[in-house]
Design a protein around this nucleic acid. Structure first.
Lengths: 234, 234
DNA sequence: TATCCGACATACCGCTGGTACGTACTATGA
DNA sequence: TCATAGTACGTACCAGCGGTATGTCGGATA
């Protein structure tokens, strides 16, 4: 077919060998095109033929760089995740107060989750394609790591002797809450209003936790019994 | 595997016509087998050939009852969802105190989410196969409806003039939190301990909300501003 | 300049979801 | 009771898909 972008892969790569330059650009082109198509039509509805056509290569090239469709997806997934994590981390920089940190982090997460690639690739298709095991592994060292960081800072403020398991549990809960809320924000008729609602709701929950902190209410421990729901009325 | 029950579809169906009886049993057999295979190997890795073989029919029969693989999945999905919703609803029966209701509901949800069919079909494959639109539509009238109900009862106790949008937001947040937490419970080395941690953590959040209620702190409204994060320090 | 290997291209295969069409059975009306 | 129509499947087939085996060619290395 018409190769209008024929040879020169990366305009100026002086030191690297030509072969390596070719290789890198081809791989990147594949990931680029794959990300776009996966985002637009989803994993299942995107054929490898469409991807290699978009990248102006053949299946041979694809299978030279990736072991298969799923591996390609994982590369795309990883990039989208890291991009998201980087943005969130950046927004957190400079924030000292843990509660402010939580608020800011929530805001930037809601921003991230409104973008099509993250929603489709990470949230929607991710679990089904990668399986929950690999999905969790990936998240654990990017976006989720940020949440853990925030939760740790926030709960540390309470000066409990919180154990790691419990912290992870809290992080999971908040992460799930924000993912779900983020999806509802992204699909809402008025995303901006929906985002404000979510911020309000989670802010309210945080305020509740903070209130308990000030009252000196004990944190439930891992060995906690069912009376852990601290202030159960009557 | 071996379905030695070849012809007689439903032993005693007096009134119904024989054809209708055959039809009903065939359809049910397909859904049964599909649920099992979808649960075991996932949607993508389950072929229609395997399903029809398990149900001892042919693809002609399948396509007579369902418009395609996705429609069959949706039938399975619906059944699993309704089963889950029914169980949760049952556990709620008799509970008067809204906070107790929340605790009990959480417990039964954690039970449900630990079962393979719900996890694999509803949580893991559901969003990817049905798309978020249909996924939400389905959940809205089953399991999620229960959560809304609980949240409504709980927040009503605060005697706010909470608007519907905000209530939905809270419900979404809790639902997401519980789904995510549930998954972590199900995949934990010690599910029972993990479940207790989740109960403790969410119970703590609920206690926080309750604390704010007692203090008479205002609920954020839909038109709330960014100061909605009520008691932000300093 | 001989050789080797990385970076692809080409050709092909088995399986899968889906379709077109045929057929057996049966409820119904004349 | 017999023609008829429609339901409930079975059979045969196909296009497209992910994946593989193998060929090719240019640059790095000796």
């Amino acid at each position: 077919m018409s190769k209008l972008v024929p040879k020169v892969p990366v305009p100026g790569v002086p030191g690297a060998s030509r072969r390596a330059a070719y290789s890198a650009s081809t791989k990147r082109a594949l990931v680029d095109v794959a990300e776009q198509l996966f985002t637009e039509k989803g994993y299942a509805a995107t054929s490898l033929d469409a991807i290699v056509a978009g990248a102006r290569v053949t299946k041979g090239a694809l299978y030279h760089h990736f072991s298969g469709k799923q591996a390609l997806f994982e590369s795309v997934f990883e990039r989208v995740e890291q991009e998201a994590a980087k943005r969130i981390q950046k927004s957190l920089r400079g924030q000292k107060d843990p509660w402010r940190k939580a608020t800011v982090g929530l805001r930037s997460f809601l921003d991230v989750v409104q973008e099509a690639p993250y929603r489709r690739i990470v949230i929607q298709d991710g679990p089904a394609v990668l399986g929950y095991e690999r999905y969790r592994e990936q998240e654990e060292r990017s976006t989720f790591a940020n949440i853990v960081e925030i939760v740790r800072a926030t709960l540390d403020a309470g000066s409990w002797d919180l154990d790691e398991d419990m912290l992870q549990t809290f992080a999971r809960i908040f992460f799930g809450a924000m993912s779900s809320a983020g999806e509802s924000v992204a699909t809402a008729a008025d995303p901006e209003a929906a985002a404000r609602r979510v911020e309000g709701a989670i802010g309210f929950l945080l305020a509740g936790v903070q209130s308990l902190v000030e009252q000196g209410v004990a944190m439930p421990s891992a060995r906690g019994r069912d009376d852990a729901a601290a202030a159960d009325p009557e």
